[in-house]
Design a protein around this nucleic acid. Structure first.
Lengths: 234, 234
DNA sequence: CGTGTGATTGACGCCTGTCAACGTCTGTGG
DNA sequence: CCACAGACGTTGACAGGCGTCAATCACACG
């Protein structure tokens, strides 16, 4: 069953301008195209686990993965999501530490595995690629710092509104204004850093306030400006 | 008044094993040694300001700098501290974005300025240095993620205990068990993400519980194990 | 149809933020 | 030398946001 999508070569994939591999030479692309290993992952499967050493990183072909840390009493704190074109696990590969997060599939995915040594070699030999990856890390660092500030200073209500808008920016809306990602109430709570019940109550509030509509797990965005106001975003 | 400490060459400085520049060649070291610009900064002076473009990064020779973001109502959220051997501002230089934090001196410092182009050039040409800097960024990213989890899940009391221990690890204790960094109550609050009054009350609690002693702004650590327990740290 | 997971609602209470008042200390200027 | 301002620390009162617990409902799946 391996290499199901193996035929989709990195040469094609890297044409996407937002891809991290855009500055690789033809030779380098061929190399990782040969070495990589594209496999399907079912919803619920764990790609790598916090506290364990990982030997390589993964490039997301399609699907959605949640990246989370396990905190007090096993409560998960969602740090990030990865989708098409994103690369995950490189942090631990490069820092040489064990994984500090767990990556779990929430929508069926195809991931290309890239061995750690390959990645490190590319960093060392290709200055442009190195810069790109560095920029990626720095961007994530900036986002993390921003989120620390939010979570430390904003109310749960404000954070929930903000998270909904963040999800909108990350995953877009379909043509009916529905968020293109569906999460359980508990997962929403684990992003915002609150209790499931609070998320439920606040979502109802947003619904009463005509900011969103709820259809099961699907969230329809009605009033972006109102959400920004509720989220204290300028 | 420029180059007051300019005589202290990077060649010497980089001998410290924890320095980011340890993998530079002799030529590269000479180059930044020539280009750098070491200046004294008084307590309270701002090194770079959130939202403004910065043209280079700074290597800390001595002193202490706080790195913070400005959140709602101008309340500052302290993200990090920099001390001897640390390098600050590289995130914005590399990502090409405006600074996402402000850096302000809290203990008189000497900083060496390194032009952005120099840093970028080094990243591109020296794979080992690139890896080191990447590891630094990745390490900071890991710490930021850990702090997100803490701040989202722990109580203010737990976070304060944890912060005291973090400060202990970062700045050590003197021979009387005093923290080697002195912060105002407000600054402590701005790390923990709480109100000044809460910090005051909780510090008194820790004092009653014989975990710490307070002498003005100086904090004496009495019971590390107790603090760990209070901070829910394992 | 039983079981399990997730969603919802209500009750309750505590943690913690806010406001206000006051004390302390330092530096400045008359 | 004293008065005053300003920054910082401390304490008390108070309310409300939000976490916790418990019960119930909805829905999917074997």
């Amino acid at each position: 069953m391996k290499n199901i999508s193996g035929s989709a070569s990195c040469e094609t994939c890297s044409n996407q301008s937002n891809n991290i591999f855009r500055h690789l030479t033809r030779d380098e692309l061929e190399k990782i195209s040969l070495e990589k290993n594209c496999e399907p992952y079912k919803k619920g499967s764990v790609i790598y686990h916090e506290g364990y050493r990982i030997t390589g990183c993964y490039c997301v072909n399609d699907g959605i993965i949640k990246i989370y840390k396990t905190g007090i009493d096993g409560k998960e704190q969602i740090i990030n999501f990865a989708k098409k074109c994103d690369i995950i696990g490189f942090r631990s590969v490069l820092s040489g530490e064990v994984a500090c997060t767990t990556a779990k599939v929430i929508e069926d995915s195809h991931l290309c595995y890239i061995p750690g040594e390959t990645l490190i070699q590319l960093v060392k030999q290709n200055g442009e690629f190195s810069m790109d990856l560095m920029q990626l890390a720095c961007k994530e660092l900036g986002e993390a710092n921003a989120y620390i500030t939010d979570i430390a200073q904003k109310t749960v209500r404000e954070r929930l509104a903000e998270v909904i808008l963040l999800l909108k920016n990350n995953f877009q809306l379909d043509n009916e204004q529905f968020l293109q990602i569906t999460l359980t109430r508990e997962e929403l709570a684990n992003i915002v850093g609150t209790a499931t019940e609070s998320v439920i109550r606040l979502l109802s509030e947003f619904k009463s306030d005509k900011l969103i509509e709820l259809h099961g797990r699907r969230i329809k965005i009605i009033d972006v400006k109102g959400l920004k106001k509720a989220g204290n975003i300028f």
